[in-house]
């Protein structure tokens, strides 16, 4: 199995520890499973809980985090200028419009792909650790250089997976790479885009199936929710709580679990109402 290069320097880990900062990379292997959406929403949700949070766009090829947060027009400098020393850290950080505790570290132009390396990421994280409680790193799809750069700056990982065969396979590969690196204190799973009706008909892998196969501890479940797309259109993540939506609630719960609260993970297949629903409810009663 291909190994990630072992972390050459651990200065960033020391910086994280001494400033009590947690640096979490969101990765998946497969593209389009919801990493960037989750990063934006967890950034908002953690900020709302009072944590100083920085979301780092590490997808230098296809940056999108700025758009999802509605901050695309406020970017002046980026990680590129910070690393090359042509601006100070604070000049590149973009403050969120509504959540004062949230800042974005924007990605530079795609040419960063040619020169940015894991050491640069570790340096960036070392600088950020001083001022933040949480650093969330939005990794690109794949397991190549961009991914390696993104994971180099983190000591925790959230593996994002869809209950779908190719996503689970790729997540397993990523889980293997992360644990072989040996620098992660915690690797947890978020299952995204779950469709309860399909799971009920046994036409979609259930949460239990996914957990069984991957054997990574579960941090949260987010169901398929069209509000996610609407909120992306607006650049206003659901976690802001402007509209009541299942995914928005799920993001909030995940953030609370991250800060150590014991929030139970609800059984996604239980919503009672009429007789048929109650029957369905009975049939979906958890027995194991």
């Amino acid at each position: 199995m291909a190994q990630l290069p072992s972390s050459d320097s651990t200065a960033h880990i020391d910086a994280l520890k001494s400033h009590n900062c947690r640096s979490i990379v969101l990765c998946s292997g497969k593209g389009g499973v919801g990493k960037t959406t989750l990063t934006a929403n967890l950034g908002i949700a953690l900020a709302k809980l009072g944590h100083k949070t920085c979301v780092v766009d590490a997808d230098y090829g296809l940056r999108n985090l700025d758009l999802l947060l509605g901050l695309e027009s406020r970017i002046v400098f980026t990680a590129q200028e910070v690393i090359s020393g042509s601006c100070r850290l604070g000049q590149a950080l973009v403050k969120h419009k509504h959540e004062m505790n949230l800042m974005l570290m924007p990605a530079g132009n795609p040419r960063m792909l040619d020169w940015f390396n894991p050491e640069h990421m570790r340096n960036l994280v070392t600088m950020l650790a001083e001022s933040f409680d949480f650093i969330l790193i939005d990794a690109p799809a794949g397991v190549e250089d961009g991914f390696k750069n993104a994971v180099a700056g983190a000591n925790e990982a959230i593996l994002v997976v869809n209950p779908e065969i190719s996503s689970v396979r790729d997540a397993d590969r990523v889980a293997g790479l992360l644990s072989s690196q040996g620098t992660f204190d915690l690797i947890q799973l978020v299952v995204n885009r779950v469709r309860p009706r399909m799971v009920e008909k046994l036409d979609m892998l259930s949460i239990d199936d996914v957990l069984d196969i991957l054997a990574v501890p579960l941090l949260g479940v987010v169901q398929e929710d069209e509000q996610v797309i609407i909120s992306s259109n607006l650049g206003e993540p659901l976690a802001l709580g402007k509209q009541n939506s299942p995914a928005g609630v799920a993001y909030g719960n995940i953030a609370r679990r991250i800060q150590g609260e014991d929030v139970p993970i609800p059984d996604i297949n239980a919503q009672p109402a009429g007789f048929m629903d109650r029957l369905g409810d009975f049939l979906s009663t958890k027995i194991i």
Binding site: E200, L202, N269, G280, L283, S284, T285, K286, I287, I288
Partner: peptide, 8 residues
Amino acid sequence: MSIMELLK
């Protein structure tokens, strides 16, 4: 596992 899944 739910009752429905068990039945199936």
